[in-house]
Design a protein around this nucleic acid. Structure first.
Lengths: 218, 218
DNA sequence: AACGATTACCTTGTATACAAGATGCTTGAC
DNA sequence: GTCAAGCATCTTGTATACAAGGTAATCGTT
């Protein structure tokens, strides 16, 4: 963790946006935030600009920064890209993954199954995340890993929602086992396809969610 | 163009880094840069932080920001990701591209051929860029387009070098024609493969360049 | 003479002061 | 009563002042 209060504030703000405590379109008032965090405007400004470059807020000159939640179209686009990035991770991982990492994936899947049996969504969610992160890392491409992590992080709040759909956790679990199987077999194309489908389905499920409650994220 | 001098300075600095006028490891002194641009430290700081989030410089607390050119390994990793992103653009474009855009691609390729015949590397480079950007856009996924453009921009200085290798322009031209053919045919997998190979070759060529002149980028 | 500690200076990080543009309210005219 | 113009106020953008930590040089000791 950095010492810079600007960085701490950036993380705080990011969390507030991602968890929806700062709603879409809301203006980030520098003075208000400065008071809230007990600092001057300077670190707040730096934090806001950091969020701006990662796309969580838009800046209009002399008017301020506004929270910018992606709309339905952009979200689907992001899931589409996410699917491809994960597919790529899977393709490379199939070629490069170590036995040790395969064992970790196996263990993670077993824990996921336990969580599923208990109906523990939060635990499943965490194990699910571990599963994916292990694959990113197993790609052996640190740049790919960081870029994929970045988008994963960005989609986190939306990804989480769809897990609560009826039967989605079961389906997700089956997909994870399929993915692991392809990685064990070392088949790059099939691993890529399994991961692409797995993530694409998340996008579709999310689409369904949106169709049913348009204003959910407002 | 933004009015904010911070943004202008960020663009200036980015250009200086990408063109190598600010060398790897060099420290970005806020005071020096402020004098150089005729402003105070504030906009310079904001500009530096913008570069930091895009990975062109690293920041060490209380020590400053340092230019960070990617090393050989990271560059190859970036080319690997670039190849996949472009492949994805190609896959989607094969399904979604309009006749109008196909015509533009055709025109661009003809101009490229002219440039090649004249041995005009700069012109070929520009037409090459247009060709790729058209495909990004034709993917119909604005998020994918912007992410791909971002990485394209980041790799620009390295991509450019390999065009000067003997025979590379001719090979590149053939690959472009192949890509266009697959897009006309509307075959997503073949279009994706053609683009992936095209970019992967750039990475390989670049690898050769590096092997021959290790200190080229210092 | 070499090594270490202390100190002075320099740089970054933060706070505050100032400048300039945008918003919104008030006031006046129709 | 309504609309518009002007002005007050508020916010952002920039400059400067202050605080704190890091670097390096110097001085003292062994």
């Amino acid at each position: 963790m950095s010492i810079r209060s600007a960085d701490k504030i950036a993380n705080e703000l990011e969390h507030l946006v991602l968890t929806g405590q700062l709603c879409n379109g809301e203006r980030l008032d520098e003075i208000t935030l400065a008071k809230r965090f007990g600092v001057s405007r300077t670190p707040v400004r730096e934090a806001i600009q950091k969020l701006a470059t990662s796309g969580l807020v838009t800046q209009e000159p002399r008017r301020g920064a506004f929270v910018r939640q992606p709309g339905p179209v952009e979200l689907l686009e992001m899931f589409e890209v996410m699917a491809e990035l994960e597919a790529t991770c899977g393709r490379l991982a199939a070629l490069r993954i170590s036995d040790d990492t395969l064992a970790q994936l196996q263990l993670t899947n077993e824990k996921s199954q336990t969580a599923l049996d208990q109906g523990n969504v939060d635990l499943y969610y965490r194990e699910n995340q571990t599963f994916h992160h292990l694959i990113y890392h197993a790609s052996g491409n640190a740049f790919l890993e960081s870029e994929t992590l970045r988008l994963h992080r960005r989609l986190k709040p939306f990804r989480r929602l769809q897990l609560r759909l009826r039967g989605r956790m079961n389906q997700s679990m089956r997909e994870h086992r399929e993915i692991l199987k392809e990685l064990v077999d070392g088949d790059p194309d099939r691993a890529a396809a399994a991961l692409r489908d797995h993530v694409a389905i998340q996008g579709e499920k999310f689409h369904h969610l949106m169709a049913n409650s348009k204003d959910m994220l407002q």
